[in-house]
């Protein structure tokens, strides 16, 4: 698991880095909706041009932008084959047992995979230009209306930000526990299912104990500082700038074009 770099954020000062996180989140949502409605060559052309433009403006190199895509290639292959081989509509090229490959299925498969690739790259652009904390804050700000129907938005935002802060620590601790138990003779690498099942207890129980111990310490510290919950004021947000509105306008326009014009 040390191969998975957590928090793909790459500090920088590009135009995309400077955009407000809320604007970026809303723009991403608009682009995802656009992507759902994309179906023609012209539509994909627009999305490709836009994505290339964003990668360039984020100051990312293509290797980084594609790094996450490369990791899930097998998954894409499965999705493609599932559609190509098992699609019910369309004319089958040939048929054997449960397999009935069709051109229509292959086209649907290719569409799904293409959309997923765009989705991953766009998502990565957001995450690599925005610190996770700002993404959470933006999420809390966008969730604010839910407060009116009785959902404790501030508590939720607090929990999410604490959770995000805990992720790297808990990952390290998990890794240490895994190594410590391996050194004591637990067999995580064994191909035998029985060994694996048996090694789960010594891994998972210590993970929960140390995670809860940390939770206990943090909660005690917060209570000692007088935090009671419920009265936390909303994080003050800076007003959106012109370029934030421009970004949202452009993405919404693309979304509308994909839905109605193409």
């Amino acid at each position: 698991m040390n191969r998975l770099p957590i928090g793909v954020y790459i500090p920088g000062a590009s135009l995309l880095h400077r955009l407000d996180a809320r604007a970026k989140l809303l723009s991403l949502i608009a682009l995802v909706v656009a992507l759902i409605y994309t179906g023609t060559a012209a539509g994909y052309g627009i999305m490709a041009a836009l994505t290339a433009f964003l990668v360039f403006f984020a100051g990312l190199d293509l290797r980084t932008a594609f790094a996450s895509v490369r990791r899930v290639v097998p998954f894409f292959l499965v999705i493609f084959l599932m559609n190509a081989l098992f699609y019910d509509g369309g004319e089958a090229l040939w048929s054997w047992w449960i397999f009935r490959p069709s051109t229509a299925g292959a086209i649907i498969g290719a569409n799904v995979v293409l959309k997923l690739i765009f989705l991953m790259i766009l998502f990565n652009i957001l995450m690599s230009t925005t610190p996770p904390m700002k993404v959470t804050a933006a999420l809390a700000a966008l969730l604010q209306p839910l407060g009116y129907i009785g959902i404790p938005v501030n508590e939720l935002a607090l929990m999410i930000s604490v959770a995000i802060q805990f992720i790297p620590t808990l990952m390290e601790e998990t890794e240490t526990i895994r190594k410590a138990q391996t050194a004591r003779g637990a067999k995580f690498d064994s191909p035998r299912l029985r060994d694996k099942a048996q090694s789960i207890m010594p891994l998972v129980i210590p993970i929960f104990i140390s995670a809860f111990r940390r939770a206990d310490e943090l909660a005690t510290a917060m209570e000692a500082r007088g935090y009671r919950g419920g009265k936390r004021r909303a994080a003050r947000n800076t007003p959106l700038q012109g370029c934030d509105f421009a970004a949202m306008l452009v993405t919404t326009a693309i979304c509308l074009v994909q839905i109605f014009a193409l």
């Binding site: 240490t176 526990i177 210590p206 104990i209 140390s210």
Partner: peptide, 8 residues
């Protein structure tokens, strides 16, 4: 360093 974490 914190071997007590491995008890289960």
């Amino acid at each position: 360093q914190f071997p007590e974490c491995q008890l289960f």
